[in-house]
Design a protein around this nucleic acid. Structure first.
Lengths: 292, 292
DNA sequence: AAAATTATGAAACAACAATTCCATTTAAAT
DNA sequence: ATTTAAATGGAATTGTTGTTTCATAATTTT
């Protein structure tokens, strides 16, 4: 791609920007460091979490070193000071996620120069991956299970997602169709969403997706459904969503955003998972939709 | 001012020391908080990572609030100040690791087991990430650039994506709207796509998204457009796509699929990048849409 | 072994962060 | 409508942090 062979060279060593790079760098020259600096180096690699969160004073005390030794250590690596070094440890704390870490740093390296537009694509990919990595954390097994069993039991699934999240709703409609699960996409054509939603019954389920800023019509329909005893499965981005109080099962997705645009990747992936697992559950468990 | 010593509490409510406790505490009384404090509360729970690592100044800027509001928020919860509150967020960051690792290894081991449904979600996440990781490799900088400059120059962008990829088309429509770029979503309502596409001219661009199995109507419209001299930007999944021969700029996305379902995450991310970069280019370079 | 160089410890310093204070606005109660 | 209380924004303040300095100690070089 863009960068043919960026690092490896012994010349012009750039200062390490990722924890992995820093680690290798330090290990490599650990032997030829002065005593106190070597001590700092060892401490830093042994206690990366502390390095990220504590102050110079605390760290120096913990490492049995003078504060200045920490600053010197950072500067000897090429950083302007300790704070810059700490930044590396902090980003590690933010981004650490299994296995994919190396992949991410690879992406970061490959898109090092912000000059050309393809690197922007790299940033988008990075953001999307970060969203995805957080998804399993933010969705508890119980919540997911609850949602799945509601969907598996439903006679008809009504899908409600307007504006920004409409693509997710559309995709769900496509999948449920392929999975041969009866569903209705509340797309509000001709502003007739109330008519479309009019046939919801208590043995159906309303699958509602809503993010800030919450589309009024979505909130309204969800409220009506709840009032009529229709179980709700909600995919939302905050515990403060206006439909939080009335949901049967609530799944919270934290999407990172790039610029002013929130990406939908995690939400889409969650939707996919929900649809597939619900369909599986309906078949294997033989939970046929309840008929009243 | 609220309370220097926390005697206002209903009963022996101690100050939350864990993130979970804090979270519940805040959720509970979110409704009865003053506006600005509620804003802070929402921001804090929506961006816990930032809360752990950034300074009051940075956070207040990000939340659109005065620094003092953050301090007040902390104090209203009973903490001595912001720093003490931040401690809770920091410990969350430290402790997040263990159960996360456990969960992931579980995911990796149970590659085939349908036992726990949340692990299925993990597999979906993994699949999506795989798609994303491949994206920067498969999109060459030149192709991306070509696509961007076509889109930036276009008077009106016609978006064409049917069936499986319709969500991507819908999302593009949303984004172009937000970016204030003139566009038309060819959604084929009432089977009137030929009418919708009828107004395309040579200074427009047709942005077409199509994957196997190629929807006939998509191919047809793309061919008509090409015949009339409308430049094409194509997002497709193969060099053998039936529209490969007639595209101005072609972007190939390789999406991995899970089960029989191809995920759309990489495509969606690419679409996002295309839209944002095109809009940027149009503004910065001043490439005003060409008028005939 | 003496000189020069480098590393180290401790304290002084400058920068910055969190906090407090107060004037002003907004909401509630009379 | 008037008064009272609460909430808010913005600047001043205080405390802490990271950094620099410099004298001393330890190495290395001649």
């Amino acid at each position: 791609m863009t960068t043919p062979n960026p690092s490896q060279g012994t010349l012009a060593d750039s200062i390490p920007r990722t924890f992995e790079a820093l680690r290798n760098h330090v290990i490599e020259r650990h032997g030829m460091l002065p005593k106190r600096l070597a001590q700092v180096a060892k401490f830093a690699l042994d206690h990366p979490d502390e390095m990220a969160l504590n102050t110079v004073a605390e760290l120096s005390a913990a490492a049995g070193v003078q504060p200045s030794a920490l600053v010197r250590f950072a500067q000897s690596l090429g950083y302007s000071g300790f704070s810059e070094l700490q930044g590396v440890f902090r980003s590690r704390l933010r981004d650490r996620w299994p296995d994919y870490q190396e992949r991410l740093t690879k992406i970061q390296n490959e898109t090092g120069g912000d000059a050309d537009s393809s690197s922007v694509l790299g940033r988008f990919v990075e953001t999307s991956m970060r969203s995805l990595a957080r998804l399993p954390e933010s969705i508890s097994g119980e919540a997911f299970d609850a949602a799945v069993s509601l969907l598996a039991r439903a006679r008809t699934i009504y899908i409600l997602g307007q504006r920004r999240v409409f693509p997710v709703a559309a995709y769900l409609s496509y999948m449920f169709g392929k999975l041969e699960m009866q569903h209705v996409l509340l797309d509000n054509f001709g502003s007739m969403i109330d008519i479309q939603a009019g046939s919801m019954r208590a043995n159906d389920v309303l699958l509602v997706i809503t993010f800030t800023p919450y589309t009024p019509v979505t909130v309204e329909i969800a409220n009506q459904a709840a009032a009529r005893g229709v179980p709700l499965v909600a995919i939302t981005d905050s515990v403060f969503s206006p439909i939080a109080s009335l949901t049967g099962a609530r799944l919270e997705v934290v999407e990172s955003d790039l610029g002013s645009f929130r990406c939908l990747t995690a939400t889409l992936t969650l939707a996919m998972g929900l649809a597939v697992v619900s369909a599986e559950r309906r078949r294997t468990v033989g939970e046929s939709p309840s008929n009243s």
